[in-house]
Write a protein that binds this DNA or RNA. Structure first.
Lengths: 244, 244
DNA sequence: GTCTATAGGAGGATAGAC
DNA sequence: GTCTATCCTCCTATAGAC
């Protein structure tokens, strides 16, 4: 991910990566091995460290210390720091994507013939992630903060796009049906604003505590959701009413 | 900004920094010296590099190469990489803050006795920065992307807070007056959502191009603003109508 | 799968000549 | 103010023993 030597390193990886699938088959039925707990420890530690200090702000040394494993193991299991990041993201993104699609399916089912309401669509998008946060799961908390960072860093847009764009297009399509009078451009921009508002909640930087002198808390997901859904829904509806 | 040796380095700086004000007095009337253009080159190069790769993703070597000046000069003029970042931010934040406050004053003046409309307040906040972006100024573009990144990185919230919180509190107060029925909590959350929506525009990651397959463009500030103001205004109004 | 050891270089910062 | 030269720490990645 460094600018220098990027080409050289890419060439090295192109030689090395194809050998990775030779590791014990994951997903196939097999007894759990020792390496699995190592992999997990590294993933969890990386998730937490990346979220706190950013990808480039953390060394593999720090990560393996937090994980309580040897430095060399991260390259054995993940091949490179870049790929470690990729797997950290992919692990949870997959889960959220499936939950969101499922929630949207249910909303469609309940709406019968017509399109679900804006509120229902927005809720189907927000709840799968935010409910996990309000359950206090630290891992999801770190993942959310990490996603928030990668979302605004140009050099990572490729990575996050691969993982998040399918969900985006799915919900953009749902919004288009729910807002038939909105221009396509307004729908795309509206989706961006939706993401932006949500990111302010899930990035949980502590800024709202400082601004409100403790009146609001970053961790109060219920309180945030209670404002976020009406805010986004009304905003999107306004775009649907717009002359153009 | 490294975790290790932070204490030791801080001690060193505490000895060194007080000597910095002995440099030629800035602001006082004096002929422009050679060092000024060096300072400027470094600030501009740092702004661009930080925005592209993040604070920790860029070395001082890269920055000074881009600036076309010697590596040692960054420490002579700025003392440390941390402080360089601080000055990069402060330079433009000051300008935007003043413009925003002035724009809000004008809106208040036009609204006469009553509070300005939500649209007027939101516009007073957004236009000072977004108009500069639509003028195509590359420096402002980099600054905006940098602010977007720091906004979601926990370890920088102290830095950005010092610079941006005064503006925030100023506009939060204006929103409170414009939305008398909204709870204080809703106002704070609403402000966060406002920021989040705006960040999606100013971070200009190119995501909207990819999602819309070129139909929308990150650089189309006018188009974004045309949707952003109605979106945020309607969202905030919904919070003002909320039962609680 | 895990460890030790190390390659090989990039990092921020600085002393001291000019 | 600017430049050269360098300190020393830290980095990612890997080779090879176990």
């Amino acid at each position: 991910m460094k600018t220098k030597n990027a080409v050289a390193r890419k060439a090295v990886q192109a030689v090395k990566l194809p050998s990775l699938p030779q590791r014990p088959l994951r997903g196939a039925r097999r007894e759990s091995r020792r390496g699995d707990s190592t992999r997990l420890s590294i993933l969890n530690a990386a998730e937490r460290c990346f979220a706190q200090n950013g990808f480039d702000g953390v060394s593999l040394r720090t990560i393996t210390e937090v994980a309580g494993v040897d430095l060399a193991l991260v390259n054995y299991h993940f091949g490179s720091k870049d790929n470690l990041l990729r797997e950290v993201i992919a692990r949870r993104a997959k889960v959220v994507h499936e939950d969101r699609v499922r929630a949207l399916e249910m909303a469609r089912h309940e709406a019968d013939a017509s399109s679900p309401s804006i509120e229902a669509i927005v809720t189907a998008f927000l709840e799968p992630l935010l409910r996990r946060l309000s359950n206090g799961d630290a891992g999801w908390h770190h993942y959310s903060r990490l996603i928030s960072q990668l979302d605004v860093l140009p050099k990572f847009t490729g990575l996050t796009g691969d993982v998040l764009d399918p969900t985006a297009l799915h919900f953009i399509n749902a919004l288009r049906l729910a807002l038939p009078k909105a221009s396509p451009q307004s729908i795309y921009w509206g989706y961006m604003f939706l993401i932006g508002s949500m990111v302010q909640v899930i990035s949980a930087t502590g800024r709202i505590e400082r601004l409100s002198r403790g009146l609001c808390r970053s961790g109060d997901i219920e309180g945030a959701l209670h404002r976020l859904i009406p805010f986004i829904s009304a905003g999107l509806r306004a775009l649907g009413r717009q002359a153009e």
